[in-house]
Simulated scan of single mutants.
Amino acid sequence: MLEVEARWLRARLAELGDEELTPLLNLGSSDLEFRTVVQPWIDREVFAPLRARGTTVVHSDLKALPGVDIAADALGEEGLARLQAVGARALLCCNMLEHVTDRAALARRCAALVPSGGVLIVTVPHSYPYHPDPIDTYYRPDPQDMSRELFPELRCIRAEVVDGPTYAPELLRRPWLLVRDLRNWPGLKDSPSGTAGSRLRWLFRPYRVSCAVLRRE
């Protein structure tokens, strides 16, 4: 998750009332170390403000690791049942849709977890290098198209592309990464777009994220 993306999420969550947020289900949460150490802005910008509000947050991921409250596969019936038992009023699905082979199926499961009046917040890369975890289908949608195609039963109340930094500041901080980037140039063989793997293509153009807030009426 980009830091600018985390700040966008903080702003959108701040616009919701307490009764709209609790409990909040964070799908594809990763573990506590990732949220607080590897990408500390996730906890600082998104979850620390929610804790301060007294919001109940349930973190869910495939792997049972520290900081994961429910280890479950949302695409499986047992996993879906466990997630439905949370009774979430709001859901986060951030940077998951590009990492699954059947994003339509994942979208249907996410929508199934949204109750009447509930909110789903989705983010996915719009312009970003190939990054398998464990795969990357190179799904890079426009947020309006994503909302319309994957979540037709939900009303999109906000959709926008958020600009992040370029690769240049990171390369200045860690210049040794240039060796990796030159090795990958002109691209990774297993990248769906051929030349998408090299971050040098984002040296002077920003990373961008498609973000959407959807509600079930």
Rank of each mutant, 00 (worst) to 15 (best):
Y139K: 09
D136W: 11
G117F: 02
R140W: 11
T101Y: 10
V124G: 12
D136N: 13
R109Y: 03
Y138K: 09
P141G: 08
D136E: 07
L113K: 04
A104N: 00
V114D: 00
R108F: 01
I121Y: 02
A105P: 05
T101H: 13
Y139P: 08
I121C: 07
V119Y: 05
I135D: 07
D145F: 04
I135M: 07
D102M: 04
D142T: 08
M146N: 01
A104Y: 07
S127A: 15
H126Y: 12
P132Y: 06
R103F: 05
D102W: 01
V122K: 04
D136Y: 06
A112E: 13
R148G: 00
L106N: 01
D133H: 13
M146F: 01
D136V: 09
P129H: 14
D145R: 14
P141L: 04
V119A: 03
D145I: 06
A111E: 14
H131S: 11
P143L: 09
D142F: 04
V124Y: 05
V124P: 04
L113T: 08
D145E: 11
R109G: 03
D133G: 11
S127L: 14
L106P: 00
H99V: 01
P115R: 02
I135S: 15
C110S: 03
I121L: 15
G117P: 09
P115I: 00
H99P: 00
T101M: 10
S127M: 10
S127P: 01
R140S: 06
Y139R: 06
V119S: 09
Y138L: 14
P132A: 02
V122Y: 12
Y139N: 02
R108H: 06
L97S: 02
Q144N: 14
Q144D: 13
D145M: 03
A112G: 11
S116R: 14
R140L: 15
D136C: 12
R108I: 05
A111F: 07
A107S: 04
L106V: 15
V114E: 00
L106D: 00
D102R: 09
G117C: 10
S147G: 13
R108T: 03
P132S: 05
R108D: 15
E98A: 12
P129M: 09
Y138Q: 13
P132N: 08
P134Q: 07
T137A: 15
T137Y: 00
V124W: 07
Y139F: 15
D142P: 03
D142W: 05
T123D: 08
S127I: 06
R108N: 01
S127N: 10
A105L: 08
G118R: 03
I121N: 03
R140G: 11
C110H: 00
R140A: 10
R109M: 06
I121K: 07
R148S: 10
H99N: 05
R108G: 00
D145S: 06
A105N: 04
D133F: 12
H126T: 03
V122P: 11
P134T: 13
A111G: 04
T137D: 07
I121R: 02
M146W: 03
I135H: 05
T137H: 02
S116P: 03
H99R: 01
H126M: 04
P141R: 08
V122Q: 08
P125L: 08
S127T: 07
A112D: 11
L106E: 01
V119F: 05
Y130T: 11
A104Q: 09
Q144R: 14
D102T: 02
T101R: 11
P125I: 12
A111I: 05
H99Y: 01
L97D: 01
A111K: 01
E98T: 02
